[in-house]
Nucleic acid binder design. Structure first.
Lengths: 159, 159
DNA sequence: ACTTTTTCGTTGACTTGTCAACTAATTTGA
DNA sequence: TCAAATTAGTTGACAAGTCAACGAAAAAGT
C-alpha cells in the first residue's frame, strides 16, 4: 500500500475515525439508542412519539404538516405514528373548521401526563450530555452543525 | 401554557432547534442523504458499500468481524451487504488458513478501481464540508463528539 | 364558474436497520 | 480429553425509514 493511494486521513488503523461525517454517524447512532432505551424504560413510548409530542407541545394544537415542519419527518411515517398515538390515547384529533383536509392535533390528558413526566427527565439528559462540554465546545458545535447543515444541501463540492 | 411547564429551551416556535441531539439528528440525516445520492450518481454504489470499502481498504485484507470493529455495523446487515458486494464483483473472499470460521476479505480489481475513483471525490466532499469551519470549530466539534460518544453510553444521567 | 394546480394526509411497496435464533468452529478449563 | 463457553458468520422475523401513487379538499388562474 502506497501513501499516494491511501493517505493518512484514511489510514489502516483508524480509517474512519477522523472523518467528520463518520464520527457524526456513530455518535448520533449511540445517542439514538440511548434515548430510545431511556424513553422505553421510563415512559413506555418510542423515540418517534416523543419527538412528535415535543412538536405538538403540552398545550399546543398543531396540524399534521405543522409537525412535519418542525420535525422534518416523512409524511407517511408521521401519518402512521400519529395513528398509533391516537390508538394509544396520547393524541386527540378534531377536524379543522376552515380546512377540511387537515386535522387539529393535541395531546390528550394521558398524553400530557406522560409528556410532563418525561420532559424533565429528557432535560436532565440534555444537561448531562452537555455537562462535559466547555463553553467553547458548546458554542462551536452548534455553529459547526449549522454550517454543516447548509453544506449538506449542496450537490457539488467545490471548495 | 405556563413558562413553568414548558420553558424556553423548548419553546413553541422552535421547540427542537436548540436541543443538541435533535440538531445532530437533522444534520446527520441530511449528510447521509447527500452522501448516498452522490455515491449512487458517481460510483453506483450504496453508502453502506462505501463504508465497507473504506474499512477493507484498497490493499487490505480483513475479516467480517474486522470490518465490524471499525464500522460498528450490525452483524446481519454486514453479512448481507458483503454477499451483495461479492455478487457485484467488488469483494473477494478466501478462507482463513488458521480459523475455518472466518474468511479473509479483500477488494477485487473492480472494487479497487471503484474505490480509487471514489476516494478523491469523497475526500473533496469532506474538505468542502469542513471548509466553512474555523480552526476552533473543527477542533471543538471533534472533541465535543468524543465526549458525547462517551456520555451516550451512560444509562443514568447524573450530572 | 370552472378547469388546473397545489396542498393535505393516507396507503402500499420497498429498502434499510435491528434483534434474536441458529450452525459450525474454536477456545477454555475441569 | 471432553464438556462448556466463546466467537464467526448466516438467516429469519420484524421495526423503522423512504419513496411514490393516490383521492379529497382548497387555492390559483382563466
Amino acid at each position: 500500500m502506497t501513501i499516494a493511494k491511501y493517505p493518512s486521513e484514511f489510514n489502516d488503523d483508524a480509517p474512519l475515525q477522523d472523518v467528520l461525517t463518520w464520527r457524526l454517524h456513530i455518535v448520533h447512532s449511540k445517542l439514538n439508542v440511548q434515548a430510545a432505551r431511556f424513553l422505553e424504560e421510563n415512559s413506555g413510548i418510542p423515540l418517534a412519539y416523543w419527538r412528535i409530542m415535543l412538536a405538538i407541545g403540552p398545550s399546543g394544537s398543531t396540524t399534521h404538516s405543522g409537525i412535519r415542519r418542525t420535525t422534518m419527518m416523512d409524511k407517511g411515517q408521521l401519518s402512521r405514528c400519529l395513528k398509533g398515538m391516537v390508538e394509544d390515547g396520547l393524541v386527540a384529533t378534531r377536524g379543522d373548521d376552515t380546512d377540511q383536509r387537515q386535522q387539529r392535533l393535541s395531546l390528550t390528558a394521558k398524553g400530557r401526563r406522560i409528556f410532563g413526566k418525561t420532559l424533565p427527565k429528557m432535560r436532565q439528559r440534555q444537561r448531562f450530555l452537555m455537562a462535559g462540554l466547555s463553553k467553547t465546545e458548546t458554542k462551536s458545535i452548534f455553529s459547526a452543525l449549522e454550517k454543516l447543515e447548509l453544506a449538506a444541501e449542496a450537490r457539488v463540492f467545490s471548495v
